[in-house]
């Protein structure tokens, strides 16, 4: 789940489905008194998902700024293309521009909630597409503090939810939701998400490692509204509490509904990138 990319990809459904979901949500809220914490957590997660449905596709230019405990910095540049997929995880295509020695390397990913993702990588020097077969989702993304898992789309099936409490974060009223990953290969025992009550955006996430120690804190900052509906953070900061390393993920530009479709996200398309 998570944010950064979750904010960038997103789900399908529009219109009718959205209508139904909203109605259900209103009903659910109405029943709030008799709700368990699990039910309430799920309801909030559903609403969060629902509010982000229908964005279609996006193209973004981004930088990752990696920082070690010493404060040294390194920058990685990439472009990310995302396609919203109904009833499954989204498809994503990442093209690396910097460092120069990996320029042109492209990573294609079909994210799935319950089975291992499908992943391919195009290696320009070898001029070959390699399929990666691995159950691992929790490794670091380009050596950053974001794990690959953090970058993939937010899907309800990936977690068990539980509402914990109301809280304020930076002056905004929030729900605090606990999310326990359902994938046993996840690197986390749980995540605590601060979801703002007004727009159902994840403002802050705390990640707990497998031994349930506080591992990382993520902040979504500088939200912008796209297509009058979709909020995206232009800056995402991830801080590792155990190693004091951090990574900032900065979105320089993002465009929606650029007309991408399934044909832009297959092994053949990988080879034909610029």
């Amino acid at each position: 789940m998570k944010l950064a990319h979750s904010m960038i990809h997103k789900l399908p459904k529009l219109g009718f489905k959205l209508f139904i979901t909203t109605i259900m949500f209103v009903i659910t809220l109405g029943l709030a008194h008799g709700q368990t914490a699990q039910e309430k957590g799920l309801a909030i997660a559903k609403e969060r998902k629902a509010r982000d449905l229908g964005w279609g596709d996006s193209v973004a230019e981004m930088s990752m700024i990696l920082r070690n405990a010493n404060g040294d910095e390194a920058e990685r540049k990439m472009r990310m293309k995302s396609l919203e997929i109904k009833d499954d995880g989204d498809k994503g295509l990442t093209i690396f521009d910097q460092p120069l020695d990996v320029k042109g390397t492209a990573f294609l990913n079909f994210s799935h909630a319950l089975k291992p993702d499908d992943q391919w990588m195009y290696l320009p020097k070898l001029s070959k597409v390699k399929r990666i077969r691995s159950k691992n989702k929790s490794g670091p993304f380009m050596g950053s503090e974001f794990s690959y898992e953090d970058m993939s789309s937010f899907e309800l099936e990936k977690f068990k939810f539980k509402y914990l409490k109301d809280d304020k974060f930076e002056g905004q009223n929030c729900f605090v939701i606990e999310q326990v990953p359902t994938d046993k290969n996840s690197g986390y025992s749980k995540q605590l998400v601060w979801v703002d009550k007004k727009h159902y955006r994840a403002l802050k996430v705390e990640f707990y490692d497998r031994k349930n120690s506080f591992l990382k804190e993520l902040l979504n900052l500088e939200f912008e509204l796209y297509l009058d509906k979709y909020w995206r953070p232009m800056r995402v900061e991830m801080f590792n509490e155990q190693t004091s390393k951090s990574t900032d993920l900065v979105t320089h530009s993002i465009e929606f509904k650029t007309g991408l479709n399934d044909n832009d996200f297959n092994q053949g398309s990988l080879k034909n990138l610029r």
């Binding site: 690396f96 460092p99 020695d101 990996v102 390397t105 990573f107 992943q119 990588m121 290696l123 320009p124 020097k125 070898l126 390699k130 990666i132 691995s134 159950k135 691992n136 989702k137 929790s138 490794g139 670091p140 993304f141 380009m142 050596g143 794990s147 690959y148 290969n185 996840s186 690197g187 497998r210």
Partner: peptide, 22 residues
């Protein structure tokens, strides 16, 4: 250099929790 970097990037993307290259 490019081959080395690209192989390592691919490998790095496929590693599990806790077993990074650091």
């Amino acid at each position: 250099r490019e081959t080395a970097a690209q192989f390592m990037l691919l490998y790095e993307m496929s590693l599990p929790y806790g077993l990074d290259l650091n």
